[in-house]
């Protein structure tokens, strides 16, 4: 609960890719390590759980992400603001997903669909791209949304295809690393480091 009260760093501008707002938005995902890790952890869990959960996840997660972002735009009258408390939820989600991957859990499709929807909502509501220029914001979001969709699809497909025992082991090791990063980051955030 204390994590929810902590402030996050404010960013004045998106990093420019030099290719326009669409690619600035796509690049923004790759330069947002927390969002990227949350996305990867949930998609890895989906891929580990099997084909059906992975299919649900790669469809529901981007839809929830997009709907939440549109909702944030609508509620804020076109000027969404960052909600720092959501970062704490992202850290919690990536830790739990990492532990589930490390444990080799196979989560049922409906549960994973709910998790994917929650992740999409939290990331979409987080005021992402609040720093983008208003006129290019829609294109930037389209770029970021496309990056979420493509990355999710690729990682889920790759994870589902991992059949050999050592590949599944590597996946579980990756899960333990993600969970460890989440736990350590939570400690730092509680200590006052953003």
């Amino acid at each position: 609960m204390a994590l929810l009260l902590l402030p996050a760093a404010a960013q004045a501008h998106l990093v420019s890719s030099g290719l326009g707002p669409f690619y600035d938005g796509a690049l923004h995902l790759l330069l947002s390590p927390l969002d990227l890790l949350v996305l990867l952890s949930v998609v890895l869990l989906a891929g580990q759980s099997g084909k059906a959960p992975a299919r649900w996840t790669v469809v529901i997660l981007p839809i929830a992400w997009g709907l939440a972002w549109l909702g944030a735009i609508w509620v804020s009258d076109g000027a969404p603001e960052a909600i720092p408390a959501l970062d704490a939820l992202k850290i919690g989600l990536l830790t739990l997903s990492g532990i589930a991957v490390a444990s080799g859990l196979r989560v049922p499709a409906p549960v994973l669909a709910a998790i994917a929807a929650a992740v999409g909502m939290i990331c979409g509501l987080g005021g992402e791209l609040a720093a983008a220029d208003p006129e290019g914001r829609a294109a930037a979001f389209a770029g970021r949304w496309t990056a979420v969709l493509i990355l999710g699809l690729l990682v889920a497909a790759l994870t589902v295809s991992l059949k050999r025992p050592w590949m599944r082991i590597a996946l579980r090791v990756a899960g333990s690393w993600i969970a460890a990063i989440g736990v350590l980051t939570a400690g730092w955030v509680l200590q006052g480091f953003a």
């Binding site: 532990i99 090791v173 989440g182 736990v183 400690g187 200590q191």
Partner: peptide, 21 residues
């Protein structure tokens, strides 16, 4: 061979968390 390296980072992170709080 793979369980020990899975367990170690998790508990190490817990130790770090304990120190930080």
């Amino acid at each position: 061979i793979w369980l020990l390296p899975v367990v170690f980072p998790l508990l190490m992170a817990f130790g770090g968390f304990a120190g930080l709080v």
